[in-house]
Design a protein around this nucleic acid. Structure first.
Lengths: 243, 243
DNA sequence: CAATTTTCATTTGTCAGACAATTAAAAGTC
DNA sequence: GACTTTTAATTGTCTGACAAATGAAAATTG
C-alpha cells in the first residue's frame, strides 16, 4: 500500500482508497484486524489523525468497524444486507430530491423493477409474505389513516411482494427504489375514492400472488402503475390551478 | 442540532448523523456552506478533530465536498449519478463476495432487472445506444480476447441496453447489479464455442432493440440468462471434478 | 484611473503530544 | 480454583501548532 505524494487528493482520502481497494479485492478477508492506528501511521508515514480520518471514511461506508480496548482495533466488516439497505435508501432519496427526478421517471423505474420480481414472487412466496400483504391491505382500508401512514403501509406491502421473490439481491436493489419513492408519494393527497381503488388493485396483486399466477400479478402491477401516474398528474394539476 | 452525551456512539458519528439528517431532510440546500470546522466545534462543544472526523464520514458518502482557502469550507454536495454509481458498485460487489451469494441468485437478479428495462429500451433507444451495442458485439468476436476483456465488453453491452431505456433511475439501479456480477463472470472460462453462442444472443438482442420489438428482446434475454446459468454450472462442475 | 502586485485574513490539511475510556489478558490473592 | 487487581494495548478526544491554499483587500505602478 503506497501513497502518491503528488496527488491532488487528501492524504486521508488516498489512505482510505488504498485500504478500500485491499478490502474490495478480497486481499483482506472479513473479520481480519487492520494494523493499529499507530502502526498504520508509521506504515503510511503520516500522523495518527490522518489515519483516523481515513478510517472514519471507511467506517461511514460500513467497510470496517472499530472496537476499543486491548484486543480492539479496526476490523473488516461483513457488509450486511441491512447496512446496504440503509445506504441505498439514503443515496436513492438524495438522488431523487437533488436531481429533480420527475414523478413519472421515478414511478416508471419503480414499477418496472417490481414487475421484474412479480413472476418470481408468484412462484416462491411463502405464507408469511401473503399474510403481510393481507395485513397491510387491511390497514390501508382503515378510516382516519393519514396520508403518510397510508404510504408507509404501501411501502410495506410492496416490500413483502418483492421479498416474496426470495432473492436477497433483488430485495436489496428494490429497497432503494421503493422506499426512496415515499417522500414523493407523500406529496399526493389520497382521497377516499383513490384509496379504495388502490386497495382493490393491491387485493388483485395479492390474489394473483396467492394463486401463483405471475401473468395476473404483472397485469395488476401495470394497472397500478398507470393509475398512480394518472393520480399524481391530476393532483399536481389541481395544485397548479390553486397555486 | 444537539448531541446526546449518554449515547453509546462516537461523538463524531453522532455529529455526522445530525448533519446528515439536516442534509437528507432538505433543511440544508445544495451548495450551502456549512459553518467552518472551528464554528462547528464550538456549536457541538467538541474539538476540531472530532468535527473533522464527522465531516470525513460525510465526505465518504459524497454528501459534502470541502475546499481550502479564505472562502472555502464544507459545502452540501449535489449527489451526481456518477458518484452514486460507484458507491452502488462497491456496495453490490461486497455484498456478493462477502455473503457468498450463489452465482444463480446473482444471475437471476441481474437478468430479472434487465428484462424490466428491455421493453422500455426497445421503444426509446437512440442510434447511439444501438451503435455501442454493435461495437461491443464486434469486439467480443475478436480473437485473442482475454476472458476479462470479454466480460468487460459484456458489461458495456448490457449497460448500453439498460441506458437505452432513457431512465436514469433505472440506469443507476442496474449499474450495481450488472457491474458487481463481473468478478463472478470473470471466474468463468469462455470457450470459443460459448463465446460464439453469447455473441449470437447479443446480436439477437440488438436486432430486437433495433426493431423496437420488446417481446423479442425479452425472449432473447431469457435465453441468454438460461444459457449463462447453464454455462456456469458446467464450468463449476468441470472444476469440481478436476480439483 | 486602471491594471497589477503584494499583503493579509480565513479556512482546511497535517502533525505532535497528551490524557481519558475501554477492554481483555495477566498477575495476584484468598 | 474462583475472584480481584493490575497492566498493557487500543481507540476516542482534546489542545495547540504550523503549512498550504485561496480569495479579498490593500498597496503599488504605469
Amino acid at each position: 500500500m503506497k501513497i502518491d505524494p503528488t496527488s491532488s487528493k487528501d492524504l486521508s482520502a488516498q489512505i482510505a482508497a488504498a485500504i478500500r481497494d485491499a478490502i474490495v479485492s478480497g486481499a483482506m478477508p472479513v473479520d481480519e484486524r487492520l494494523p493499529s492506528e499507530a502502526e498504520l501511521a508509521e506504515q503510511f508515514d503520516v500522523s495518527r489523525s490522518t489515519v483516523r480520518e481515513a478510517l472514519k471514511r471507511l467506517a461511514a461506508q460500513s467497510l470496517i468497524r472499530t472496537q476499543r480496548g486491548a484486543t480492539g482495533g479496526a476490523f473488516v466488516n461483513r457488509l450486511r444486507y441491512a447496512d446496504a439497505y440503509s445506504q441505498q435508501i439514503t443515496t436513492s432519496t438524495l438522488l431523487l430530491s437533488m436531481n429533480a427526478v420527475s414523478f413519472e421517471t421515478a414511478c416508471e423505474a419503480r414499477y418496472a423493477l417490481e414487475r421484474a420480481c412479480a413472476p418470481l414472487s408468484a412462484s416462491r412466496r411463502t405464507p408469511d409474505h401473503l399474510a403481510t400483504m393481507r395485513v397491510e391491505i387491511h390497514r390501508q382500508g382503515q378510516p382516519g389513516l393519514t396520508d403518510e401512514a397510508f404510504c408507509a403501509s404501501d411501502v410495506a406491502f410492496h416490500r413483502a411482494l418483492v421479498d416474496g421473490a426470495g432473492n436477497p439481491v433483488l430485495s436489496y436493489q428494490l429497497a432503494g427504489a421503493v422506499e426512496a419513492m415515499q417522500p414523493l408519494m407523500n406529496m399526493i393527497t389520497f382521497t377516499a375514492r383513490s384509496r379504495e381503488r388502490i386497495i382493490a388493485l393491491h387485493g388483485g396483486i395479492a390474489d394473483a400472488i396467492e394463486a401463483q399466477d405471475g401473468g395476473a400479478a404483472d397485469a395488476a402491477l401495470v394497472e397500478l402503475a398507470e393509475y398512480t401516474v394518472e393520480l399524481a398528474r391530476s393532483v399536481f394539476e389541481a395544485r397548479a390551478v390553486k397555486g
